[in-house]
Design a protein around this nucleic acid. Structure first.
Lengths: 197, 197
DNA sequence: CGGAAACTGACCTTCCGGGTCAACTTACGC
DNA sequence: GCGTAAGTTGACCCGGAAGGTCAGTTTCCG
């Protein structure tokens, strides 16, 4: 978008800078989220903040230029893998675990999930895809009676969003603690079959 | 502390203003948290911001002057009631439900739990009391095998803190949704006895 | 009524990050 | 090489939000 395909070809130095900015943005966004000061991205790229505006028009343009590499690809990989699982119980377990893993290791994912850029159709599309699978999972869980019947799509969504907020604004827990808590969540939402008597 | 007991007695108008500020602070803090702009408290009290500084020295002084009425009393009531419950399972259920209820209806509680004022011994004491009961509850739960054995004190603490963050920075869920989710949490952490066969 | 106490509005300060621009530097076609 | 357009950049402005301050005025009360 924007500068990528328009008008005359870039001069060599401009192209080089754009590449460096992209690379820096991937690193910095991945590790510190999509709301990191652009100045930090610029510093990591070895250019000045103004150059980012020259090449990408601003934060949104830059985010859209790298969001795929940063999280979108991984997110859709998770969605695909989830869909490929037959057993509803496993499916839900995989999805929740994988999403929470992504949220832990890729702060940028939380910014996407929290819809920090509501004006970017591209970013919103990613969110929408995630909402869709929530529906499927809950439906599958109910159909197979492996999910508590009162558990709703909104509950699953809230699970993810609340975790995003906690990771974004709170202290990052140790990995082992985080994973253990993922387990408690899964326990809490799964239907306990009345032990096949 | 500070202005309350020091030096000469206040003039009538000063005393009146101090009272109005206290009353306004209770309302505003309760509803909107302890980090609300002091200007809003002043407006609600019908005085100017500077008067709050005159009487209370600043936000911390004011918070300490009203924290008891705002949340501390309710919080310790919860702790007391929890301790008075004999059954470990019920105890945990009551505590988690009551704390989460407090968090939902009293945003100020979240600011206390999140330790927004680490320099106030008074506020920190409240936190500390809350941490103590976490220990007791987890110990009781383990002793009676009503709590998952891998569930730790930190897990309980994280449960409360993460919820505080979610309520502070996120959208407030509908009450029914919130309560339902409280139920999922309780399900997730309780030990499922191997159905008394 | 006089002076001390108290109040207040307007102001300062700091932090933060997005965004802009005139002046400088660099690439590159001729 | 050199002119010039493209590109870069540091320094700047902006807005918002909030804590904190103070000179000038009002209010109390002995």
């Amino acid at each position: 978008m924007g500068a990528a395909s328009s008008g005359s070809p870039l001069r060599a130095d401009a192209r080089r800078n754009a590449d460096q900015i992209r690379r820096a943005a991937m690193d910095v966004f991945r590790d510190r989220g999509l709301t990191v000061p652009l100045e930090d991205v610029a510093a990591a790229a070895g250019v000045s903040k103004a150059t980012i505006f020259n090449r990408f028009g601003g934060r949104v343009g830059l985010v859209e230029a790298v969001i795929d590499e940063v999280v979108a690809a991984e997110l859709s990989r998770i969605v695909d893998r989830t869909r490929s699982i037959a057993d509803a119980q496993e499916q839900m377990a995989y999805y929740v675990t994988a999403i929470r893993d992504l949220q832990y290791s890729r702060p940028a994912a939380n910014d996407v999930l929290l819809q920090e850029f509501p004006h970017s159709p591209q970013l919103m599309a990613i969110c929408h895809a995630a909402e869709e699978i929530d529906d499927e999972l809950v439906a599958a869980g109910h159909a197979s009676s492996t999910l508590r019947p009162e558990f709703t799509r909104d509950d699953l969504h809230a699970l993810v969003v609340d975790n995003a907020i906690a990771l974004k604004h709170g202290a990052r827990p140790r990995r082992a603690d985080y994973d253990r808590r993922t387990g408690f969540i899964l326990e809490g939402i799964r239907a306990h079959k009345p032990s096949p008597a």
